[in-house]
């Protein structure tokens, strides 16, 4: 059952298949290969699965050099170290130099759980979003990731994948169509649009179900690609419902809320409320505690929807 599939297994299986058929595909780790699952590839492809040790900046630079030689390197680490830690290497050696490097950052936001504040990135999307031409994608579930990875490797240019290692709830059906650059209307509604990403998609769907009982008809748009954001789908939905709530496992500053508001402000000014992390650092805890601590629960989405309706 796909419900039982870990995202990292989807990722590692995909890489293995690609590395078997294309000798230009490489993977680089920085001493977190056991966590990403890529350690298995180091044994299978000792020349093309490299572990550079605890030196993320060097990993990014080596990947840039390999890309300039025609390789397609995937670099992996926990999300904060795959982004914040190496922001300048991503900016200059990778993006400014137009290298085809894929960045896999695991355990986004509250998924970092017991690793706590030092490892809990709420800022990674915000930090990368102003770099020209980088694609930022946060897979929703294993079904979607499986369909996204071939498109990611086909896309020439840097892509940041903000990936859970484990298995967030599956919200897509296995026969769904997926386009990396399109948002997906998972549920149609007429009163309010929720635009959600990552683990907050499931939360949004649950909130929509609760609100149905109160005769509030919610449209849920799943927007896993935050850059480039699918403006067309978001504008169309916002024009239909006249009110928008954004939901993300990230700081509301710089992430999905910012991307959606930018689109709406310039194209279809619409009242917006947001669910996301607000001016807080991470902390240790399990997901249920962290959802409560950072107001990422169904009740928070319900509240935001009711609030935004009053602004219509």
């Amino acid at each position: 059952m796909i419900q039982d599939v870990l995202m990292r297994d989807v990722f590692v299986d995909f890489l293995r298949e690609q590395m078997q058929k294309n000798d230009k595909v490489m993977v680089l780790d920085a001493d977190l290969a056991k966590c990403a699952g890529t350690i298995a590839l180091e044994k299978e492809f000792p020349d093309r699965a490299l572990n550079v040790g605890i030196a993320e900046a060097n990993m990014a630079g080596i990947a840039a050099g390999l890309s300039s030689y025609g390789y397609i390197p995937f670099i992996t680490s926990f999300a904060p170290f795959a982004t914040r830690r190496i922001a300048d290497q991503i900016m200059i050696s990778i993006c400014y130099a137009k290298q085809n490097v894929k960045i896999i950052g695991t355990d986004p936001g509250i998924a970092a759980e017991l690793n706590g504040g030092t490892h809990m990135p709420f800022e990674d999307i915000g930090m990368l979003r102003s770099i020209p031409n980088i694609v930022i994608y946060e897979p929703t579930d294993a079904v979607e990731l499986k369909k996204a990875l071939p498109q990611i490797i086909e896309h020439k240019g840097p892509v940041y994948v903000r990936m859970h290692r484990k298995n967030p709830a599956v919200v897509h059906s296995e026969d769904c169509e997926f386009n990396l650059f399109k948002a997906d209307v998972l549920r149609e509604g007429k009163d309010v649009t929720i635009v959600a990403s990552g683990i907050m998609v499931e939360t949004a769907l649950k909130a929509a179900e609760e609100l149905k009982a109160e005769n509030i008809d919610v449209e849920v748009v799943c927007s896993p690609t935050i850059k480039p954001i699918d403006a067309e789908t978001i504008i169309k939905s916002a024009k239909k419902t006249g009110a928008v709530v954004t939901c993300e496992n990230h700081n509301v500053m710089g992430g999905l809320r910012s991307a959606v508001c930018e689109v709406l402000a310039e194209n279809a000014p619409t009242p917006v409320r947001s669910v996301g992390v607000k001016e807080k650092f991470g902390e240790v805890g399990k997901v249920p505690y962290l959802r409560k601590a950072f107001n990422l629960e169904v009740v928070d989405v319900v509240k935001a929807v009711k609030e935004v309706i009053t602004l219509k």
Partner: peptide
């Protein structure tokens, strides 16, 4: 010009990557 540089400290890592690429090729 084979590699972009300017933010100091980054070029040697890139050269290491290129050298690995050449070895593989």
């Amino acid at each position: 010009v084979d590699m972009t540089a300017g933010s100091l400290g980054q070029g040697l890592s890139c050269a290491v990557g290129i050298a690995i690429g050449s070895k593989l090729a």
